[in-house]
Design a protein around this nucleic acid. Structure first.
Lengths: 210, 210
DNA sequence: TATTAGATGATAATATTTTCACAAACTTTG
DNA sequence: CAAAGTTTGTGAAAATATTATCATCTAATA
């Protein structure tokens, strides 16, 4: 279970998992890498390669057993237990994420929210308790939350991030454009929407037809 | 201006632009690749390499002139004119994006929104007119919009995407977990939040300390 | 049971991206 | 103006990631 697989592969795993879930729900029992490939828009050779890092999961001349694969991914992706995460910043985006049902097919749940505004603090929004952002460190520690999502202004995110790390955070999802500096045992995932959009536009202009 | 630069580089450009904007506002005149590197968390050699694809933009023994670089990036990233985009689906996430001010420092503006609900259609939300999603193709064509953001349920996104493409869309930003199939002259950028979060959790569990 | 079509797993070949390391070129200073 | 100190730009090497190929192996069928 401690195999080191390429990052690029790791990034594709949740997508694979998602698709397999769908197949399972549709009661489809087997899948070939080429069919799989078409659905998730990844080359079939890449899929076989990705899966083979974990050992021989498929049968030659047959394909992959959906339920097998799914069980396997469940363990690999920690989908067999619930992961609680904290959400810091209840502006527009924060609110949207709060409503957004991660739990649905991902076993990830926002279990605590933080904000700076008095009228929010100590209320319950979409079933999630809202705490004062001042108590971030303390609450993370008490609730043993290791994953934190930041939807706050870029100007304050580094300070809050430092707090979170002191509270024991191991994973940060950063929606601001500020790049965070963290100890190297902490992982940051940046989701910069403006960035993505600009990249998209750049590609349209400069890589036309490819 | 038609130099083919690596994709990996292209993805970093908006981030560079953003950081340079900040420097400009702070009236900082010069920047070295190593300082730059620390701020955006990219190796300095990578930055120098990235910039060098566009020619010799820096001065040896001195660094890069902020305003020079910025002007350059403005052109490269089409920041010298406004790009209008359409937003399809005004659920939680859609609403959040509508409020979200892309325009602020990016010259990208949501100029049309689409939804299926009667009570939304023909209203103006956050200054943006909302149309019936039935008219997607027609409106995109009329308004010459080439970039479309989808924040709709995964079950309908492919159909709407087909409509958009017929309406002339060249770039799609897809917030669903469904991978879209499009003609190859159309570019898709996937932003799958569940995916990102699961990847983050995977990395925390399996790549501890690195 | 023998045969064949189909599909994986493994390996090899490419392609891409990052990093290293240093000469060349510039700035600054005395 | 010369020497000392910086910093770029880039060739070469290393690290990552993708794609192609093919020798098996399985399932199905006659």
């Amino acid at each position: 279970m401690d195999i080191k697989i390429p990052r690029a592969t790791a990034k594709r795993l949740p997508m694979y998992y998602r698709y397999l879930s769908g197949l399972h729900d549709a009661k489809i029992k087997r899948i070939s890498s080429s069919t799989f490939a078409e659905a998730v828009q990844v080359d079939s050779a890449t899929i076989r390669r990705d899966l083979s890092y974990f050992g021989a999961l498929g049968k030659r001349g047959y394909g992959y057993e959906v339920d097998n694969l799914l069980d396997f991914f469940k363990k690999i992706l920690n989908q067999d237990h619930l992961t609680n995460v904290a959400l810091v910043g209840l502006g527009n985006l924060g609110q949207a994420l709060l409503h957004f049902n991660f739990h649905k097919d991902s076993n990830v749940r926002i279990s605590a929210a933080f904000d700076i505004h008095d009228d929010m603090i100590n209320t319950v929004q979409s079933g999630v308790p809202v705490y004062d952002v001042k108590d971030l460190q303390e609450q993370l520690r008490d609730q043993q939350i290791e994953v934190v999502i930041f939807t706050v202004p870029a100007t304050v995110v580094q300070d809050l991030c430092d707090e979170a790390v002191m509270g024991g955070a191991k994973g940060i999802m950063n929606f601001t454009s500020k790049r965070l500096s963290v100890p190297k045992n902490v992982r940051v995932q940046n989701v910069d929407l403006t960035n993505e959009l600009q990249t998209l536009i750049y590609f349209i202009e400069h890589y036309e037809g490819e």
